[in-house]
């Protein structure tokens, strides 16, 4: 079941992404309205991370495109924020919590300009929102997983974006952090901002997300959680027989065939 909307904030159109010729995403096509908290769910290797990386132009799609606010990412970049998976960076980097959060203000500054009072206050504000005031000068390698995740969230907050893509912000965090993060995300959506989250915990889907996108290489469902988060669709996403698809993907890889005729 795929429910489309008019005037979408996010439009993913016929998106196909391959990795070393192996298709990771097939023909993904959905739209998202603004002001919602949306969850992308699917089993391991379903292409969830690839999907938001494609939205952020971090992977090049084989075909199809993503439009944000009806425009290409390049035109609206300052309104979009991306939070990578916590484990993708080396937390032994010589920086404090405050240093990392302040990095969120760098992109808007452009070349040769450095944070002044305004940016610093933005960072302090974000620090408060994720409840890390006491850790401002803590070296980032000394943080727990949950605290690291909150640092990443705070960095995104300083970007003052209207649309957020977050990769597994709830993975491996403690209960207190989960509560803080969901509070911050809900506050964002209550201000009309749109948040798209890659998520792995089925237990909390119904509780957290207004909108759910289910993928397993291909799109299974996209729509309001109350309509699409059904046992049948979950079963189709996680348990569904995709052997044939996997086999074809493997064939494309070994035979060096392009996934599209062009």
């Amino acid at each position: 079941m795929i429910i489309h909307v008019d005037q979408p904030v996010v439009e993913v159109h016929d998106l196909t992404v391959t990795y070393e010729r192996r298709p990771v995403l097939w023909d993904i096509d959905f739209t998202l309205p603004g002001g919602i908290l949306a969850g992308i769910i699917g089993p391991n290797g379903a292409g969830k991370t690839t999907l938001i990386k494609a939205a952020m132009d971090l992977v090049v799609p084989g075909s199809g495109f993503v439009r944000l606010f009806g425009k290409s990412l390049k035109e609206v970049r300052s309104k979009v924020s991306y939070v990578p998976q916590r484990r993708t960076v080396d937390w032994d980097f010589p920086a404090s919590v405050y240093d990392v959060i302040l990095m969120g203000t760098y992109p808007s500054l452009g070349l040769f300009r450095y944070p002044r009072k305004a940016e610093k206050e933005l960072a302090l504000d974000a620090l408060r929102k994720v409840e890390l005031e006491d850790f401002k000068n803590r070296q980032i390698s000394q943080l727990s997983g949950g605290q690291q995740q909150r640092v990443f969230l705070a960095r995104a907050l300083t970007q003052n974006a209207d649309l957020f893509f977050m990769d597994e912000p709830f993975a491996g965090v403690d209960a207190a952090t989960e509560k803080t993060i969901i509070k911050v995300l809900q506050e964002l959506t209550s201000h009309g901002k749109t948040v798209v989250v890659v998520h792995h915990d089925l237990q909390s889907v119904a509780k957290y997300f207004d909108w759910t996108i289910m993928i397993h290489s291909r799109l299974i469902a996209s729509g309001p959680t109350s309509q699409v988060f059904t046992p049948e669709l979950v079963e189709k996403t996680y348990g569904g027989k995709l052997d044939l698809l996997t086999e074809v993907a493997h064939l494309l890889q070994t035979e060096k065939l392009p996934p599209r005729e062009d």
Partner: peptide, 21 residues
């Protein structure tokens, strides 16, 4: 001059790229 870019890229290049740095 490029301290900001060098630092951000060294720590988290995906973030830096996504933000248009």
């Amino acid at each position: 001059l490029f301290y900001k870019e060098l630092k951000t890229t060294a720590f988290d290049s995906d973030f830096a790229r996504s933000a248009g740095m």
